[in-house]
Design a protein around this nucleic acid. Structure first.
Length: 819
RNA sequence: GCCGAAGUGGCGGAACUGGCAGACGCGGCGGACUCAAAAUCCGCAGGGGUUCAGAGCCCCGUGAGGGUUCGAUUCCCUCCUUCGGCACCA
């Protein structure tokens, strides 16, 4: 018998598939389309790791399965090649990023091919290729033309290690998302994309996509919509001048309960309203607040400190005079930087009021009358002490009060968002240039479309700078140009685009990757998109996944595509942890390299193990013993099935029907598991199926020569082919087929009926007491008779009164005793 | 604090719509093969009790407590723990 030579087999079939152009996606075929996409890799120097496998292998299984089911499958791959690590590595080694990236891509390509992934390689893309980034630039201009890109001088987060400005989404816990260095504020001129004008659309359409709730809730959170009102309080400064102080509130129904006002320390009014006798204390407080912020911005200590300014403000609704405080629990960048204090109905205000002995005035009550308050009552209720609004319910009061304020010109309804515009400028070399020319006369002018792409110069010192200036600024050949409008000497924009700009549209390019006239043909994109299934890590929840949705919405509004949401269904794969249950990292020395695993066990074992390791969307630890078990499984079916290879003996036994029944059962079960992405239990099913086949062939050596057994084996091989494509292809041919198993049709159950017996569970008081094998379809009376004949049942029933009988046909009989 | 996910043997994890808890795999134990070991193959195995022993039989058991139900890992309530996210958001 032939030995299972996995390295030979995988090499042989990978070559065969490539030579015969398997897996090419056909534009506009008659078959139904299925677009399955994995988040494309960043080609780092360390190559592919097992984490990639957790995503790419299951995706490939689905792609192969869908092909067998008759779909026209698009399963593409490419490289998210612009970005800091390649550049940093390049700086370290003195090699241009372009070369570094090319080398890394070569490694990735080799490793991806080794995994036997069924990509359509003819559609491979690379975001750092001018043929690609030409269109990244083109989209920048599209956004610019649609009024969605603007330039602003502002103070934003800067990573001192990466030496670039970051978008808000890319600052995590006050640290750079890439390198973990604490960020600082830096004032620079930046380009912004107006994602804020899509906040509502991005929020609303979350309801129309099949994504994990976790990701949706993170996006909702990030967009952070809150409806409320802006109320104009009037502050009176020490010289008697009046100043307007708008405050933002979501609980305008509590407005009659305002007993103080708090300004953020940075609020410009602070200096104006502070009275002479308070000025010293206030200045000290501001200084302390400043220092505190720098020292521990992340402190969980939430003491409500504050200080009185000495001045008062008028509540425009009831004319009451309330003291103005300064407090650092008020954030200047959110809302108006000023808050009305309603201690009776807000937890923080309550604490603040207690601390500063400010009166607490109840205006909301659950029952509609004043009650004793020991803590803030933050629920909705019925208004009390609220003038003509008393007696209204909170929700109604909010509407009435807002209309009243609008009428009087003292306030209005307003919607606030947490999300801010997306800063696109990066002060780094290795990215897509921003296609803008700064003309002394015409200002920022987009580069004419026919002149795109603005090429990234090769010969340049790409070391990043602390100055906030891009390395490109030091290349006169790049910088100096003429204005596209007037021809006057002008300077190019030297910042490059955030790498996320490149990845915000790559899934569209796969539909038409070689188009040099436009980013994609509308027809092709409308044929292939939206993506039916997108698989990738959850870490991109509010970065890539939000930006891509934004681009897609913009393209829809621009009439370039016929759909608003890019990814119909999203799945997040779990992480693969080291054998020590820790995140894999070089420093911990617990990194598993796929190359080594393949050398030892072959690609099919790696694939099967990654599928078997645990539920697809949860983290799982790598186990050397675990992979051994899976390898053993593959060897076991190889050994059994290979027996049939050269034989054309055909025998016939009575037990054949049972084999067909079992085969049918597994077809149904495995298909279901495949459809619901339960790869771990799918592998278990194959193991059980094999255990059955082994068992019956141990009982009777000749059973393997029956038609039913051979059919079961062939069905097994076909169905496991998406998971372990090489060994199944080899066995399929050994079993006498000349066409690829991957071109065969996914097996359907033949509808062979199970034996007409079934196990019925007999319970007494809901406890299992006996199990009987009976003919199917027996009536309650018949089963009852059998049940009461059982000695096991009798023991529990004897001498007791029978209450009722629960009967589930062909399944269970429960005898309930009277108490 | 808020939002989300999850708690099942020694371990990873199964269980359809409320109906046999622990599939499958790992590790463990016993046996076969072998001079021996490895590999391979066959078998056992939730915990406890009863029993000389085995079969058998009984009790307990899905984070804790309560509820609904003939019957709950599954549904409801309260709580605890772990992980992930957001966080003075007014």
């Amino acid at each position: 018998m032939e030995k299972y030579d996995f390295l030979f087999i995988q090499k042989k079939w990978q070559k065969y598939w490539e030579e015969h152009n398997f897996y090419r996606a056909e534009d506009f075929s008659d078959k139904p389309k299925y677009y399955i996409l994995v988040m494309f890799p960043y080609p780092s120097g360390s190559g592919l790791h097992v984490g990639h496998c957790r995503n790419y292998i299951p995706a490939d299984v689905i792609a192969r399965y869908k092909r067998m089911k008759g779909f026209n499958v698009l399963h593409p791959i490419g490289y998210d090649a612009f970005g800091l690590p390649a550049e940093n590595y390049a700086i370290q080694k003195g090699i241009p990023p372009k070369i570094v990236t090319q080398n890394n891509i070569k490694t990735f390509r080799r490793q991806l091919r080794m995994l036997g992934l069924s990509y359509d390689w003819s559609r491979e893309i690379n975001t750092s290729d001018p043929e690609y980034y030409k269109w990244t630039e083109w989209f920048f201009e599209l956004l610019y033309k649609r009024g969605l890109a603007h330039e602003n001088v502002s103070s934003e987060w800067w990573c001192p290690h990466c030496k670039t400005i970051l978008a808000n989404e890319q600052v995590i816990d006050g640290k750079c998302w890439r390198c973990g260095t604490p960020v600082v504020k830096k004032e620079l001129k930046e380009w912004f994309f107006k994602i804020t004008s899509y906040a509502d659309k991005l929020l609303d359409d979350l309801n129309n996509i099949d994504w994990p709730e976790r990701i949706k809730s993170m996006q909702r959170n990030w967009i952070g919509k809150s409806k409320g009102a802006e109320v104009n309080f009037v502050a009176v400064d020490p010289s008697g001048n009046e100043h307007n102080v708008p405050v933002f509130t979501t609980r305008v129904d509590t407005i009659f309960g305002v007993t103080f006002l708090v300004l953020a320390p940075e609020h410009p009014l602070v200096k104006k309203v502070t009275t002479r006798e308070n000025i010293e204390k206030v200045e000290k407080y501001l200084e302390d607040a400043q220092r505190k912020r720098e020292i521990d911005r992340l402190s969980t200590e939430k003491e409500k400190t504050g200080i009185f300014t000495g001045s008062y403000a008028i509540n425009p609704l009831n004319g009451e005079k309330v003291p103005i405080y300064i407090g650092d629990y008020v954030v200047y960048s959110y809302g108006t930087g000023a808050v009305m204090g309603v201690p009776a109905h807000d937890l923080r205000d309550f604490v603040f009021a207690k601390k500063h002995s400010i009166p607490i005035k109840q205006v909301i009550s659950p029952a509609g009358k004043e009650t004793e308050l020991n803590e803030a009552y933050t629920e909705d209720g019925i208004l009390v002490n609220s003038g003509k609004f008393s007696g209204l319910k909170s929700a109604e009061a909010r509407e009435k009060i807002v209309s009243y304020m609008e009428e009087k010109g003292i306030g209005n309804s307003i919607v606030r968002y947490h999300i801010r515009d997306w800063i696109i400028s990066r002060q780094r070399y290795w990215g897509a240039p921003i296609p803008i020319v700064h003309c002394p006369v015409h200002g920022a002018v987009p580069v004419p479309e026919e002149d795109l792409p603005v090429l990234l110069p090769d010969e340049v010192d790409f070391t990043p700078r602390d100055s906030g200036e891009s390395p490109l600024a030091n290349d006169p050949d790049f910088v100096n140009t003429t204005c596209p409008v007037c021809g006057k000497p002008s300077e190019r924009e030297t910042d490059t685009q955030d790498g996320f700009a490149c990845s915000s549209w790559y899934f569209l390019r796969y539909a038409d990757p070689h188009n040099d006239k436009e980013p994609f043909s509308r027809d092709k994109v409308n044929y292939w998109l939206p993506v039916d299934l997108y698989i990738g890590g959850a870490e991109h929840a509010v970065m890539h996944l939000l930006y891509s949705r934004f681009y897609t919405h913009v393209l829809y509004d621009a009439g370039l595509i016929g759909f608003k949401e890019p990814f119909k269904k999203l799945l997040n794969q779990g992480m693969i942890l080291g054998p020590d249950h820790q995140k894999m990292s070089k420093s911990k020395g617990n990194v598993i390299n796929p190359d080594d695993v393949i050398k030892k066990y072959g690609t099919d074992t790696l694939r099967a193990y990654v599928l078997f390791i645990g539920p697809f969307d949860t983290d799982a630890a790598w186990s050397t013993e675990g992979i051994n078990g899976v390898h053993r499984f593959i060897n076991r079916f190889w050994n059994l099935f290979a027996n049939l290879a050269d034989s054309n003996k055909v025998l016939s036994f009575d037990s054949e029907k049972e084999i067909s029944v079992v085969t049918d059962k597994w077809i149904r079960k495995i298909t279901k598991q495949m459809e619901s992405f339960k790869f771990n239990t799918m592998l278990s099913s194959f193991m059980e199926w094999l255990n059955y086949l082994v068992k019956i062939s141990n009982e009777n050596k000749d059973i393997i020569y029956t038609k039913a057994f051979r059919n079961s084996v062939e069905t097994f091989v076909q169905m496991i082919a998406p998971a372990v494509p090489h060994v199944s292809e080899e066995l399929w041919h050994m079993l006498g087929h000349s066409e690829s198993v991957h071109l065969s049709k996914w097996p359907e159950p033949k509808g062979i009926h199970k034996e007409d017996k079934t196990d019925i569970i007999i319970e007494v008081n809901g406890k299992l007491r006996d199990k009987v094998k009976v003919a199917k379809g027996l009536s309650e009376e018949e089963v009852k008779e059998i049940a009461f004949a059982s000695s096991k049942v009798e023991k529990f029933v004897e001498g007791k009164d029978i209450g009722r009988i629960i009967f589930v046909k062909d399944k269970l009989l429960n005898i309930v005793l009277k108490r």
